[in-house]
Design a protein around this nucleic acid. Sequence first.
DNA 1: CCGACTACTTAGACAACATCTAAGCTTTGA
DNA 2: TCAAAGCTTAGATGTTGTCTAAGTAGTCGG
Lengths: 135, 135
Amino acid sequence: MPSEVEELLLSHGVKPTPQRVVITEFLLRTDSHPTADQVFEAVVNALPVPLSRATVYNTLNALVQAGVVKEVSTEPGRTRYDANLDRHHHFVDVNTGEIIDIPWQEVPQLPKNLNPRFKVHGYQIIFFGELDKGH
Amino acid sequence: MPSEVEELLLSHGVKPTPQRVVITEFLLRTDSHPTADQVFEAVVNALPVPLSRATVYNTLNALVQAGVVKEVSTEPGRTRYDANLDRHHHFVDVNTGEIIDIPWQEVPQLPKNLNPRFKVHGYQIIFFGELDKGH
DNA sequence: CCGACTACTTAGACAACATCTAAGCTTTGA
DNA sequence: TCAAAGCTTAGATGTTGTCTAAGTAGTCGG
C-alpha cells in the first residue's frame, strides 16, 4: 500500500523512488523554503544508501516540472523550493533573508488583463521588509 | 563640464570613471534588462583600454548600492539590471524570457499593512505570461 | 612639482551553484 | 532469463560571481 507521498508523486506522474520520497517528504514537512544544498544536508542521512547531489538537483527539477513544488527566487544566485501548493505570496525579511508565506486571500487580487499585449498566466508578489519579533 | 551621466553618478556619490560612465550609459540606453555578461559584451569595445569582468561586477554592485540601478531577479541563477528608476513592475514572457516594464500606475496599489508582524518596505510584482505579437 | 595616500582597474585564481557524463544498478515486461 | 528503459552515483564540467595581488590614476599637503 503506497504512502501518501508516494500517491502524491504517482498522481503527478513521478516514479516514487526512495530518494524522491524522502526529498518530497522533507519539502512537505518544512516551511523554510530550503535551497538545494539544504535539502541535500537534510535528507542525506535518511537513506541507507549514498545520496548524490545530482540526484537532489534532478529530483527538484522533476518535482518542479511535475508541479509538486515551486521554485522561489527571492535573492539572486540561489534557488529555493516551496512545497506549499496553496496559492500564496512571500514576505522576505531583509535582515535575515527568512521567507514567510502570505496567504493568498490576505492580498488583494490583481487584474490579469492589464494590457491587451499581455496574456497573463499568473503573477508573483514578493514583499520586502522587517519582521517584528515582538509579535 | 561634466556630462549628464557623470552628473548622475556624482549626485549618487559614485566617482565617474570611464568604465563606470560607459556601463551606466549603456544601462540607461537599453530597456532589455541585461545580465552582467551582456553588459560586458556591450561595452567592452567602447573603451580604449581592456575591460575586466570584475570591473563590470564591481560597477554594477556599486550602482545598485548607490541606487542608480536596480537588480531584477525573474529567473534563478542570473541577475539582471534595470536603470528604469520610475517605480514599475515586470512582465516576463514565458516563451522567450523577455522582460517588459509595466508602469506603476497600471497595477492597483497593494496595502503595506497586511499583517502587524510585517513592516513592509516595498514589494515587487512579476507577471508571467505570453506576449501577443499581433499587437 | 613631489611623495604618499586613496580609490580604481586588471588578469586570473577561486568559490558557489548547477548540470552533464559515463558507468552501474533496478525495475519492468516479454 | 533477457533486454530495454529509467534512475542514481561520483566526479568532471559549466556558469555565474567574488576575491586577490599587482599595477595605475587621481588627490592633496607640503
